[in-house]
Nucleic acid binder design. Structure first.
Lengths: 209, 209
DNA sequence: GCCTGATCTGGACACTGTCAAGATTATTTT
DNA sequence: AAAATAATCTTGACAGTGTCCAGATCAGGC
């Protein structure tokens, strides 16, 4: 009964920008980053091939918006994981890492768009801010972990946590670690949890010396 | 004075396959993975747009060959680094990691093609074997590091070394860690060396318990 | 009411990857 | 040596892409 549902195809869409983002996510999920096509997104949204130009400067503009939205979801998933985890700093850090990796495997193309593509404009304020928010959360979690051991992390410690997590996520995403990719999700999570906990505990222990 | 140099454009190229791979590397380096075009490669090789089809099934075929060649160079660079490094197992492992990261920053598009693209056919025997050789070397180095401490690495230990190294390489490649990317190469190498050495030493110490 | 600006369409252009048919040269067979 | 065959490369075509442009449609302010 909504205005959109009544008329078959009103000339003005109403919220085409939002619809294009939603359609873009579907396009990414189904056809992957390499198969992504702006015209395909327009078709999905039931609109002419030139319509997106009025909401995004070009294809890169839409991809930039998609990447920004991706980073927000990315952070959200990490925070969700943390809520369900035990409250001690290491468990929280592990939960965040699991969310990082979980996201990568749930949205492979989007993850690649965010981290391994030159197409989004990383100068865009919207994208830069969304990415920064995710990094800030990571830094915060590492700091808390070190604080529990009576110290503060060096810049390199934060990087190391990030690199380890990101490396796992990216390698899993690229199907590089066969025996891990082939596992069922529950089992894989166990293995990854164990790895992250071991490593993070060691890193945080540096605060004691 | 070679046969190729005398005639301006002989109908048969002689070694077009090799020339296309060389041209493909240039195309990747100059225009990036997203800007890569098969016709562009053909132009670079001074040959008609349909010529590549006689040496590679399609664009993916050329990219697959490029990725395989990339993995061989990748391993080569790591081994070169190891030759110049101190012989103790940790230094050797660090040297390998530095080679890994160095390669990623020297050939960003190629690195992405190898690790973060769905375009190469990873079922290709040539590519699979080249990638496996690199992984085997990594496994060998980690094993040696643990052996020096009187133990053997678990599967997860190998993965952890790999993930940390790969994570650093990929994040640097994506220009995600500003303050590291902006450094001059010599300084960045110092920081990275320090990180790797610290972490690898800790990981190898697990063999002592 | 009308008009300005935002929104969307349809057609055009240059570019892409791939296919098919023909031209040219290498190689093998007779 | 001559002829047939196979490999190599070119030209032309096709559908698909991103982007630009002129025009159609509509919303909201005057």
């Amino acid at each position: 009964m909504t205005a959109r549902a009544v008329k078959a195809a009103p000339y003005h869409h109403g919220d085409l920008r939002g619809a294009l983002i939603k359609a873009g996510e579907a396009e990414l999920a189904e056809r992957g980053l390499e198969g992504f096509s702006l015209r395909g997104v327009a078709r999905r949204a039931g609109v002419s091939h030139a319509a997106p130009a009025h909401h995004f400067q070009d294809a890169g503009g839409l991809l930039t918006a998609l990447a920004a939205e991706g980073f927000r979801r990315f952070l959200h998933r990490q925070l969700q994981r943390q809520k369900k985890a035990k409250p001690d700093p290491v468990s929280q850090m592990v939960a965040s890492g699991l969310g990082y990796i979980d996201f990568a495997m749930a949205h492979p193309a989007l993850f690649r768009l965010m981290f391994s593509s030159g197409r989004p404009a990383h100068t865009s304020p919207e994208l830069a801010e969304a990415a920064r928010a995710a990094f800030d959360q990571l830094e915060h979690d590492v700091t808390r972990m070190f604080a529990a051991n009576g110290g503060r992390p060096a810049r390199d410690d934060v990087l190391e946590v990030w690199a380890l997590t990101h490396g796992l996520a990216d390698l899993l995403n690229g199907k590089r670690m066969r025996f891990l990719c082939d596992m069922r999700k529950a089992e894989r999570e166990k293995v990854v949890t164990n790895m992250l906990r071991t490593s993070f505990t060691e890193i945080a222990a540096r605060a004691r010396r």
